[in-house]
Design a protein around this nucleic acid. Structure first.
Lengths: 175, 175
DNA sequence: AGCATTCTGAACATGAGTGTTCAGGATCGA
DNA sequence: TCGATCCTGAACACTCATGTTCAGAATGCT
């Protein structure tokens, strides 16, 4: 998928992207007339993936916070793409779309607060940003091989909520 | 300063950077033969700034954690530059230098743990990454005008340590 | 087999950023 | 005032990604 290449190398050539996608550059151009169009399409897809992860976790009862974190960690690469791509910084449309996603996550966190799994002291917008940032860092460390995928959600949860029970036994420090 | 331009627009032209720095492109080339050389120089400077913030905060007794967070927030732009610039991802030298900086922060956090201001449950490397990520997010929100600079350290501290007293009264939610 | 659609490789034009050179101007200390 | 040093603007060649075009091959449907 084009996302993978663009995450690894944001400045990748269209030729590189095309060959990674298994098509010719000409075909790529026929689908996405310009580079900008391709980037936007990938960005929109990345946002959709994130949004689906969030809304998927929102359904069902129980520990919503744990579910949303666990759902977001695997899509960390998409987060990285959106996050690190400078060309989206000043794009109003994508910015608005992202605000929507932040809103969805904010709703989820609101439920988590009612459940008591998230401290009610911090402003909600901050919790949203902190969550995204921690998930991103976790997925980056997974990518670098420093963190086991199954341990990541626990670390993020523990940091975000100071719930000791969330810390994976494998990596927790001796108490 | 070149950093400011490069943070705002990582792909900025040498002409843009030069004019922002108040010199001609020719002069810029005389100082830094290639674009790569310039980027490296800015990166090294950014790392030095971060390192100095950390080591500066390490001196003196009392709440080390609060001091290091407060010292790092203002250099968030440098963090952003290092963080978001793809060309550093595979640079062994810069990577090694950054590991040193992480080590310095890890030492500071070790002291903070002994002081009792930081939970001893999480792995130290994770605390380092989480701290950087939260500081980055805070400084980004400062840049966007959503967060008052003086409130930022409190938010980061509160998230990292669940110390309720660190939450700025201005932005804390009603309890 | 016939037809339509899609993909492909190659070629080409274009534009933009980069790096180089150089002659002349500005600055500053002796 | 002289000389050294640094800065400047302009011009130039070069590289490279991009976008376009097109004739032909491949695929798939009827």
């Amino acid at each position: 998928m084009a996302t993978d290449v663009l995450v690894a190398e944001p400045g990748a050539t269209l030729a590189t992207i095309a060959s990674a996608a298994g098509v010719s550059r000409t075909t790529l151009h026929s689908h996405y007339p310009t580079r900008q169009a391709l980037l936007r399409a990938v960005a929109e897809r990345a946002m959709r993936v994130c949004a689906e992860a969030i809304s998927g976790a929102a359904e069902g009862g129980g520990d919503v916070l744990a579910r949303v974190v666990a759902a977001l960690v695997p899509v960390g690469a998409h987060l990285a793409f959106l996050w690190r791509n400078p060309s989206f910084d000043h794009d109003p449309e994508l910015g608005a779309r992202w605000l929507e996603i932040e809103g969805e996550l904010r709703d989820v966190l609101e439920v988590a607060r009612e459940e008591g799994s998230l401290s009610a002291d911090l402003p909600d917008w901050w919790s949203v940003h902190a969550l995204f940032a921690l998930v991103y860092v976790a997925s980056e460390n997974i990518f670098l091989g420093r963190l086991a995928p199954l341990d990541a959600p626990g670390l993020v949860l523990a940091t975000l909520t100071s719930r000791r029970d969330a810390i994976p036994a494998r990596i927790g420090r001796p108490r």
